[in-house]
């Protein structure tokens, strides 16, 4: 369970989050929608622990533990995963090598044994098959020369392998064609489970047809301004964000 209480964040003296409150229960898929500049990506970075963001107030509790005190790698080991909107390239490092290093680093941090190579390969292959990731892609340097769709599938592959408890999808649908959207969504849906929750950040209803959320939150000017069920997304699709922009101005 993730609880965000009165989160106030600024970057370079610019206030981005203004007392944001949000709770995502175990097994819940929560969607966050909102206009550009409402602070959605900032929220995902702050949860994951990116530097440069100054947290002025509030707390983020993962199963009761305040993660704001933790380094990004410790948060990852604790179960937080961020699927990046723009995944980074790591030249010269085969995707396979990266996956193994990441998985074993997390296991080590949790005091678990490192996986043996055959075990590891078995797991990767299973996950890769489901996401229609060809084996030669795993040998290529991570994200280097990958298409937009390949990068997003690689993000979901990492998620499947690392088995986080709290997953953030930051505009995972951006840059995906219909087929890639389906594959990625199926990959995410396969990971839905009672002890794993998701925060799905998106501009569009389209993704939520594939990954059906339990709750939908509208974000504006660094706050959650409206919450509801999945029907809220449809309403937004029909009416746009105009109502909420006004509240931003008010």
């Amino acid at each position: 369970m993730l609880e965000i209480k009165n989160l106030v964040v600024q970057i370079e003296d610019k206030r981005i989050l203004n007392g944001l409150n949000l709770t995502v229960n175990n097994g819940e898929v929560a969607a966050i929608m909102g206009p550009n500049g409402s602070g959605k990506s900032t929220l995902s970075y702050v949860i994951a622990g990116k530097e440069d963001y100054e947290v002025l107030d509030g707390e983020i509790l993962l199963d009761g533990q305040n993660v704001l005190e933790m380094e990004p790698d410790a948060r990852a080991a604790a179960g937080i995963f961020l699927a990046f909107q723009y995944p980074l390239e790591i030249p010269g490092v085969a995707s396979m090598t990266f996956l193994k290093a990441a998985l074993n680093a997390q296991r080590k941090a949790r005091g678990e044994d490192e996986l043996t190579t055959p075990d590891f390969i078995k797991r990767v292959n299973a996950a890769a098959t489901q996401l229609e990731i060809p084996k030669d892609m795993l040998k290529r340097a991570l994200n280097v020369g990958f298409s937009g769709g390949e990068k997003k599938r690689m993000e979901i592959l990492q998620m499947a392998l690392l088995q986080p408890t709290f997953c953030i999808l930051d505009e995972t649908d951006s840059g995906l064609d219909i087929d890639a959207l389906r594959i990625v969504s199926e990959g995410v849906n396969a990971l839905r489970s009672p002890d794993r929750s998701f925060l799905v950040i998106t501009h569009y209803q389209r993704l939520l047809n594939h990954i059906v959320p339990d709750t939908v939150h509208v974000m504006s000017a660094g706050r959650i301004v409206k919450s509801g069920g999945k029907e809220l997304a449809l309403e937004l699709e029909a009416n746009g964000y105009a109502d909420y922009r006004e509240s931003e101005a008010a």
């Binding site: 994951a48 790698d73 990852a76 680093a105 997390q106």
Partner: peptide
């Protein structure tokens, strides 16, 4: 940040990136 988000410490991340290089 990307590497750390995946669980690698700062030093592990540096080593990995350098080894790729």
């Amino acid at each position: 940040f990307y590497c750390q988000q995946r669980g690698l410490s700062e030093e592990e991340a540096t080593a990995l990136i350098v080894n790729g290089f």
